[in-house]
């Protein structure tokens, strides 16, 4: 009886506090409670945005309607869709984030490889300057660039964003160069040396041996690059002035665009701009990224873990 009793105590104890192979019940409960609480904090703005965007004008005015709209109302989305000029802005956003990202990723790999695999005078200085390009605020360089683009007639053209990317000076290029630098440093050199003895040229070695072995770094860089280019508005709003309009640019002048389409004096009170329409616009803005994120989510995180972005 005594033996049985202590056995049960042990089992309860191990259930509550965990043993060598698993966490206890108390720990697990606290862990999930915390994760759910923090997860809620993260999701709250999104949830708020989505619920508000589904509210009809009457629901907005009704103080009783907080989290559950009384009807399925999509009118806000119809308006926001028109105001954002959605199809055009979406295509522009996709082009203006994918094209520079592809170029930026490839060029960053090239530079990172050169820094990791070759010894030459000034290597450390270049690494330091790359870090500096990350730190220097954009407003310290953007005006002369803008004026030069204006003189060259490139203002408003996608080239204004693509050219810096080609030269390794794209949006946050420094991070990607350093990621590739780290990646190539940590990859073994044996294969490349063997190929060199066989007489392969440096560029060939880079393209056929180094690039395939650094695939996770390419995935991470490309995805982050797309996301950051998509969300970037400071540079795009200056360089694309009067030209192509991306989704975030359309969103930042949403009120003005709305009042052009639906003049406040001309439409009835329910069609005036309200927070529900604004939230619909915001949601439409992040929807493509959300879709991309949930499709690529696994890749996103696992590649980061494999590239060792953290640095040594």
């Amino acid at each position: 009886m005594q033996v049985f009793h202590s056995h049960t105590v042990d089992r309860v104890r191990s259930l509550l506090f965990g043993g060598r192979t698993r966490y206890g019940l108390i720990f697990t409960t606290v862990l999930y409670a915390l994760l759910i609480a923090i997860g809620f904090v993260y999701l709250y703005p999104l949830l708020f945005m989505f619920i508000t965007s589904m509210k009809s004008p009457t629901d907005l005015l009704n103080p009783l309607v907080q989290w559950v709209p009384t009807e399925f109302y999509t009118g806000n989305y119809v308006k926001a869709f028109r105001v954002l000029n959605y199809p055009n802005a979406l295509v522009a956003s996709i082009l203006l984030s994918v094209a520079p990202s592809l170029l930026q990723t490839f060029v960053a790999a090239l530079i990172g490889y050169g820094l990791a695999r070759y010894r030459f005078w000034g290597r450390r200085l270049v690494l330091l300057l790359i870090l500096a390009t990350f730190i220097i605020p954009p407003q310290n360089t953007v005006i002369p660039q803008m004026l030069t683009y204006r003189d060259l007639g490139l203002l408003g053209s996608p080239l204004a964003l693509i050219l810096p990317a080609v030269f390794g000076q794209g949006y946050r290029s420094a991070i990607f160069i350093l990621v590739f630098y780290q990646t190539f440093l940590s990859l073994p050199k044996v294969l490349e040396e063997a190929a060199r003895i066989d007489g392969a040229s440096d560029l060939r070695i880079f393209l056929t041996i180094a690039v395939p072995s650094a695939l996770p770094a390419f995935v991470v860089s490309f995805i982050f690059s797309v996301v950051w280019y998509w969300n970037e508005t400071f540079l795009t709003s200056i360089f694309l002035e009067g030209g192509v309009q991306t989704l975030p640019m359309q969103l930042s002048r949403f009120v003005q665009a709305y009042e052009n389409l639906y003049p406040p004096g001309a439409v009835n009170i329910f069609d005036r701009i309200n927070e529900a329409v604004k939230m619909s616009g915001t949601f439409l803005n992040i929807l493509p990224l959300l879709v991309m994120y949930f499709v690529l989510q696994k890749w996103f995180v696992e590649s980061v873990e494999r590239t060792g972005i953290a640095g040594e």
Partner: peptide, 17 residues
Amino acid sequence: IFFLPVVITSGPVIREL
């Protein structure tokens, strides 16, 4: 969920929120 903000944090979105 925890990486979601990386994807959607842009100036205009934050401003609206």
